[in-house]
Nucleic acid binder design. Structure first.
Length: 575
DNA sequence: ACGCTCGCATCAGGTGGGAAACGG
DNA sequence: CCGTTTCCCACCTGATGCGAGCGT
């Protein structure tokens, strides 16, 4: 099962959704299923670390298998007529059960929650069975000499918030941007090799969906004959591995449309059908310098599926919970925040509302406090593993600014580094050794530039590099006591440089606290007066925390914040 | 004079709401 | 008739251009 069906219990009916939202069962945690599946509280747990991939690889592939946290294997419905990729592309389809060994499960919310296929037989829908097409042959992730990338879903907490209510994406004739949009950090590529990076949106299941009685229910068969572009190639493609790994790869300009006949902007548009469930997938294809695929290499194409990015395409929002999440988190919808003023009493700069167009990730704010994040995930997975194998819930950011470094009070922060049983990046890399370790996460580990954002920052105050507004408070003191970025690089047994970071619990606790408050306020419809400051500050704890970190530190390419966001990234590795 | 920063105004474009239109 | 789609609206963000102010 892919979540959608099972989540339906959390939905409120459209009619009284506004009322229900005030007592939102899911938010209230009255929906254990939803909570179990998507509680964000645990998202920080054991999930956030970043491999250092660019250095010490001498232009060769960083050893991806050195830090494979878990393997996404979101099932994707593949009508036979639409099969485009060999099953090997589908991660789950090639992942032996051991891929979801405790170490894997411990890193992921998904293995039990999403019931992802742990082996080909576990997928609800058949994996891709077709042969490769012009899009490129699919990688055999576990075999061959080809390098295997690791991909972080940058704004995963936000995606989880939406996914918990069954994400909906508006599609319009002229095209509508996705929100949340897809944003990744990639590691494990060859620095010098060239890659095309693109997103493909495929049907997630064979059903037509309808929002009925406050739930998404299936309603007949999906129309498999949908035509139109399903691929969005990142505009910076092709580019070197160094380029892709240097900064976050944002697909914020990707638009969804239902206009099959659209002739303009086809490169920016993906054509979908309303009321169908889709699953975006990220493809990384190694190409020649001029962007031509090497058809001789089967291992040069990699695909990553993030189940939490699944969504149902709609022409109008059905679930008001989704609507509210969009309003709350999308800066462009700020005008619809009825208690906008009270929501954000903190200086606007503190709200960390970066550019939607440029600051791809950072603007996807997660105020978070208005929606409960339940610790169920943590329980769910921690219980499966020795406690000491998990991060604490708090996310840390790879910055060493003083403000943020002041906390980590627990001192018991645990860090993950993942080593592969085999460094060769072969199939046995499914067997992972996730070992907690202590260390400091140094920004020196982050040789990532700021890319286009840096140029964009020209008018930005140093204290708030991504925002044109000054930061009267000079960063985020409220965060200073909550997150201490700790960075450490570690060399694993094979010499692969591994970076990980400490995660302390305080931030997560703050999130919970803030969420509890907002819950008491019956979600955002009620003014969040006094604690609204807390609300906004807690918003920095989610995805924007790293931005806050950026804010606190001098903004420079030496210590770019983008990788700091990886503290919130989910980490997928090609098996 | 020159370069830089800052503030302001303007514009393009993104957002959800709601009413109207469409279609089975 | 009812569910879905389309269109327009007000509101918002971000990019850009311009001029003022300041320091060298």
């Amino acid at each position: 099962m892919l979540g959608g069906e099972g989540e339906s219990s959390t939905f409120s009916s459209p009619k009284d959704a506004a009322e229900e939202r005030r007592k939102s069962p899911a938010v209230d945690g009255n929906d254990p299923a939803a909570g179990n599946r998507f509680a964000e509280h645990s998202m920080g747990s054991d999930r956030y670390y970043i491999p250092s991939t660019i250095s010490k690889q001498s232009g060769e592939t960083a050893n991806p298998s050195s830090f494979i946290p878990y393997t996404p294997s979101g099932t994707v419905y593949t009508p036979s007529s639409a099969a485009r990729y060999p099953s090997a592309l589908h991660l789950g389809s090639v992942l032996p059960p051991t891929g979801f060994s405790p170490s894997t499960a411990g890193r992921s919310h998904f293995s039990p929650a999403y019931q992802l296929g742990q082996s080909p037989g576990c997928t609800l829908y058949p994996p891709y069975t077709g042969s490769g097409t012009a899009l490129g042959s699919m990688a055999l992730p576990s075999t061959g000499p080809g390098m295997r990338a690791q991909v972080y879903l940058c704004n995963r907490p936000l995606w989880l918030k939406f996914h918990r209510h069954q994400t909906e994406m508006i599609i319009t004739k002229q095209g509508r941007r996705m929100f949340p949009f897809l944003s990744f950090n990639i590691a494990g590529l060859s620095v010098t090799a060239h890659y095309n990076v693109f997103v493909e949106v495929v049907l997630a299941d064979p059903n037509h969906w309808r929002f009925q009685g406050g739930k998404w229910v299936t309603c007949g068969k999906a129309d498999n004959s949908s035509q139109g572009n399903k691929v969005y190639i990142h505009p910076e493609s092709p580019n070197t591995g160094a380029h892709w790994m240097r900064q976050e790869i944002s697909f914020s300009k990707l638009k969804l449309t239902n206009n099959k006949g659209t002739s303009h902007n086809t490169s920016q548009m993906i054509v979908l059908q309303s009321l169908h469930k889709y699953q975006p997938r990220l493809h990384i294809v190694e190409v020649t310098e001029d962007g031509v695929e090497d058809i001789n290499s089967e291992v040069k194409t990699q695909c990553f599926t993030f189940p939490e990015t699944q969504f149902i395409a709609v022409t109008a929002y059905q679930n008001t919970d989704i609507t509210q999440l969009k309003i709350d988190h999308n800066p462009f919808a700020k005008g619809f925040r009825d208690n906008y003023d009270s929501m954000y009493t903190a200086p606007e700069s503190d709200r960390l509302t970066p550019s939607p167009t440029d600051s791809s990730r950072a603007h996807q704010i997660v105020p978070g406090t208005r929606y409960t994040m339940q610790p169920l995930f943590q329980d769910q997975f921690v219980n499966n593993l020795p406690q000491n194998r998990f991060y604490n819930s708090e996310r840390a950011v790879p910055q060493t600014n003083s403000l943020l470094s002041s906390q980590t009070e627990d001192g018991a922060s645990q860090r993950w580094f993942v080593t592969s049983m085999q460094q060769g990046g072969n199939s046995t890399s499914n067997k992972l050794d996730l070992t907690p370790y202590e260390g400091e996460y140094s920004s020196s580990l982050l040789p990532y530039g700021w890319g286009s954002r840096a140029a964009y920052q020209r008018k930005v105050t140093p204290s708030l590099p991504w925002s044109p507004r000054p930061s009267p408070t000079g960063a985020f003191p409220e965060d200073s006591g909550k997150v201490k970025p700790q960075v450490e690089e570690e060399v694993n047994g094979s010499g692969a440089l591994i970076a990980s970071w400490t995660e302390t619990q305080s931030a997560a606790l703050s999130l919970d606290k803030a969420d509890s408050y907002s819950l008491a306020c019956k979600r955002r419809r009620l003014p969040l007066n006094g604690p609204s400051t807390e609300d906004s500050q807690s918003s920095t704890k989610c995805e924007d925390l790293a931005s806050a970190t950026t804010n606190n530190s001098s903004y420079s390419k030496e210590a770019p914040p983008s990788k700091g966001m990886a503290a919130y990234y989910s980490f997928y590795a090609n098996p």
